[in-house]
Design a protein around this nucleic acid. Structure first.
Lengths: 147, 147
DNA sequence: CTTGACCTTCCAATCGCTGGAAGGCGCAGG
DNA sequence: CCTGCGCCTTCCAGCGATTGGAAGGTCAAG
């Protein structure tokens, strides 16, 4: 099985397979006399594993650990779970970050006329706000913040 | 005002200011006889605008358009709104993607004992699943998919 | 004059790919 | 045998948005 066949069988893409080898995610493949890489069915399984893990957003570093655990017949499932939950925590943090951005922008866009006039709360927010916290009804007066 | 002062005033970071200049996001700053960059209060406002826009996750490319619209007194707010809503759409798409990853992983992790035993539904999913769709009760039988 | 804090430029790394160029290999047809 | 096509090989470069470091010039104070 050469790299093109392994690519078709795994769905991973020949260049990506070579890349994964170069960074040590997969071991160096065997070679034919001519220098062609040779793959086994098991190699294809590893590639599929990696592909699925990437689909779930795991970093290469974590996938390395997951592959290692997968190969280890004596792995404690707790370790796998910890890797997964660490990743979940990062995903949730990222989601919260993007959620905050999106909500803020939706609010600003909602307040924008969206016509030919230049007045725009979106630009006003970007230009003026020091931190960007939306002020609702209590507006701009600095209130009890005297020096 | 040199780059360090502009950095402190804008909160942007001297290296990043130079980078923004190098990619054309901000115009080339004036220079002293010795070659030091010189900034005005307005430059600082632009930097703050950029910083806030980055906080909201806008790409450099979109920020360029936003800065252009900001400077244009005759801008139609509709254009600003469109840039913002395009970005919101991308944010929502990304959120949905991460949400799907996180939910799948939470489900798998929830089904994982997380103890010393090697059996683990997370690894089973990564290893075996062709697409990763969770099958619930209708399991593995290929049903009516005969050739 | 020396010190130290600034400034300058350029180069490299991050992360996960993806593309291209240049050259070798395998197999078919003429 | 030669040619062509499609595969394989390596290396290099770039994406986006920074961040870091090295090597060297400048400024103000002691």
């Amino acid at each position: 099985m050469n790299i093109g066949e392994a690519s078709k069988a795994s769905g991973v893409g020949a260049k990506l397979i070579r890349y994964y080898e170069s960074i040590g995610l997969i071991p160096e493949a065997g070679r034919t006399a001519a220098g062609y890489r040779v793959y086994s069915g098991n190699d294809v399984n590893v590639l599929r594993f990696i592909k699925r893990a990437r689909t779930l957003g795991f970093s290469i570093e974590r996938i390395q650990r997951l592959v290692g655990l997968w190969q280890d017949r004596n792995r404690p499932s707790a370790e796998v779970k910890r890797v997964a939950l660490d990743h979940v925590a990062e995903l949730e943090a990222k989601i919260a970050e993007l959620r905050a951005m999106s909500d803020t922008l939706k609010e600003l866009a909602n307040a924008c006329h969206g016509d030919d006039r230049p007045d725009c709360p979106i630009l006003r927010d970007l230009a003026h706000e020091d931190g960007g916290a939306h002020a609702h009804h209590n507006g701009c007066h600095k209130a009890t913040q005297g020096p």
